[in-house]
């Protein structure tokens, strides 16, 4: 009795499976299905847009603050050596890129205004990751000293996408060297440009 019930249930499952399956034919072999009918085709044209997108995650919230805790300051020691945050590795760079006519792209980095004397910011790719993306990283792992001149952060890459959010794309390290405790000018930005 149990065997009979099992067989009925199994048959029902098989039937449900076939009912839900999408119906297909081998259109390359008309002899396999043609009783009456015909076939034809038309030609479609596809034109896709170029895509050049990059951002820094977490977004919003990718502003970095390098400060000094006054209680950590000690006479005779440099300000940044007194325990103030001088390294940040929390920022991830994402991109989505589709090139026209198979053109490759790069990611450049530069500052929107000059830095004060004796204040240096270095940007460095320290890791790459791919969570849900499809891309060839090809990063420049060397530290880059931020300036108003464009510098290559990611070398030539083909169309692709890094995946969105923290933990995918390029992990960046910001290092600040600010022995005299200078402040950045108002509106100072480090700009990443995919081109």
């Amino acid at each position: 009795m149990k065997n009979k019930q099992f067989i009925i249930v199994a048959l029902s499952i098989v039937q449900v499976f076939f009912c839900n399956a999408q119906e297909t034919i081998n259109a390359n072999d008309p002899n396999s299905f043609i009783f009456g009918g015909d076939s034809d085709f038309n030609t479609a044209t596809l034109e896709l847009q170029e895509i050049l997108l990059t951002d820094l995650e977490p977004d919003p919230g990718n502003t970095i603050s390098f400060g000094v805790n006054p209680s950590d300051m000690e006479a005779g020691k440099p300000v940044t050596g007194a325990g103030g945050t001088s390294v940040n590795e929390d920022i991830w760079l994402n991109f989505t890129y589709r090139g026209i006519n198979y053109r490759n792209a790069r990611i450049l980095v530069y500052a929107n205004q000059p830095l004060p004397a004796d204040l240096e910011i270095k940007i460095q790719v320290i890791a790459t990751a791919n969570t849900g993306g499809n891309y060839n990283p090809n990063p420049n792992y060397n530290p880059i000293v931020a300036s108003t001149s464009e510098q290559v952060l990611v070398y030539d890459f083909a169309s692709g996408y890094t995946g969105d959010g923290e933990g995918t794309g390029y992990q960046l390290r910001y290092t600040i060297d600010n022995p005299n405790g200078a402040s950045l000018p108002t509106g100072f930005e480090i700009i990443y440009e995919i081109r």
């Binding site: 085709f41 038309n42 479609a44 034109e47 589709r98 090139g99 006519n101 169309s159 996408y161």
Partner: peptide, 20 residues
């Protein structure tokens, strides 16, 4: 279209088969 699909003007055939 994935971002990996090339940004070129391309043509493709779309086939229709009617079965009676």
């Amino acid at each position: 279209a994935s971002a990996t699909v090339p940004g070129v003007i391309a043509t493709y055939n779309i086939h229709y088969t009617v079965v009676g």
